[in-house]
Amino acid sequence: MRGAVEAKLRWPQHCLLLLFFLQGCAIPETQLTHIRVEAGASLAGYHVFEVEKVTNDTGKTFSFDVSSFFTDELESALRTKGYEIAEPGKAPAKALRVTCSIVSYSPSTAGEKAEATALGLVPGGFYFRPENIAVVKATLVDQQTGKTMADLISSKSQTETGVIPPISIDSAGHTVSLMSAEKLVLRYAAWGLASKIDETIKQS
C-alpha cells in the first residue's frame, strides 16, 4: 500500500519532468541575424536605448498581442546585455532609438491541436505542425541627430515537437508555466537582435 501511495505522489513530478523535456524539443532550427551599419557611422559609446513599440506589419491578427510581447522581450534582452532602457520621450541625447516591425510571423500551432492520450489529464497537448517562423526588421536611430545608424533583420525558424501550454501545475502555492513554441520563436528573434546590437557595439 505504501508503495502505491508513493508512486501516486511521484506521478505529478514525473509528468512535470516529461513536460520540460518535451518543451525542450521545440528548439530553433535556423537563427539568422544580420546588421548593416551606415557608412561613416559607429555604434561605439551607446549604452541607452529607447525601444518604440514594435509594429505588426504582417497584416494578420494573432491569439496574443505580438507587438507588446516582442517589445518586452527586446527590452529584457537588452537589459540582460547590460544596457539601460529609457522611458519613451525621456532618453538622453547619447541614446539609440530602436524601431522594429514584425514583417512575417507564422505560428504553426494556431488553432491546430492534437490531445495526447497518455497525458489526457494534463491541460494542453501535443502539436505536430512543422515550423514556427518569425522575421523582424529593426532600425537604430541616433536620438539627438535623428540619423539612421544601422539596419537589422532577424529571421528565426523553429521546428515544433513539444508540449504547448496552457500548462499550470499548482503545488503548495507554486505555479509552473511553460512558454509556448509560437512565442519562443519571437523571443529568439528578439534575443538575436539584442545580441547582434551588443556584438556590434563592442566591436566598434
Score class of each variant (00 low, 15 high):
A39I: 08
G3F: 14
A44R: 13
S154A: 07
E131H: 12
A110N: 13
S104A: 14
M179R: 10
L74K: 02
L119I: 14
F20N: 08
K147V: 11
V103H: 06
I169A: 12
A194I: 03
G146N: 10
I167Y: 15
T145C: 08
T200G: 02
Q23G: 09
S108V: 08
Y188T: 07
F62D: 05
G3Q: 15
G3S: 11
L19V: 09
F128P: 06
Y46K: 03
V66A: 00
Q31K: 14
P123Q: 08
F128L: 09
P92Y: 03
L32K: 11
G173K: 03
L186A: 05
E87N: 09
E182G: 11
L32N: 14
V54N: 05
K183Q: 14
M179P: 03
S171N: 13
G162P: 02
I27A: 13
F64I: 08
I167D: 01
A7V: 05
I102E: 01
N132L: 04
K81V: 03
K113E: 15
T30R: 14
V141H: 07
S204I: 05
T55K: 13
T159K: 13
N56L: 07
I27W: 15
P12Y: 03
L43N: 02
S168E: 14
F64P: 08
G124L: 02
L96P: 01
I133N: 08
A86M: 04
V176Q: 07
S63N: 14
Y46I: 05
T139S: 13
P12R: 02
S104H: 13
A190L: 00
E50H: 05
Q158R: 04
A41V: 04
S76F: 07
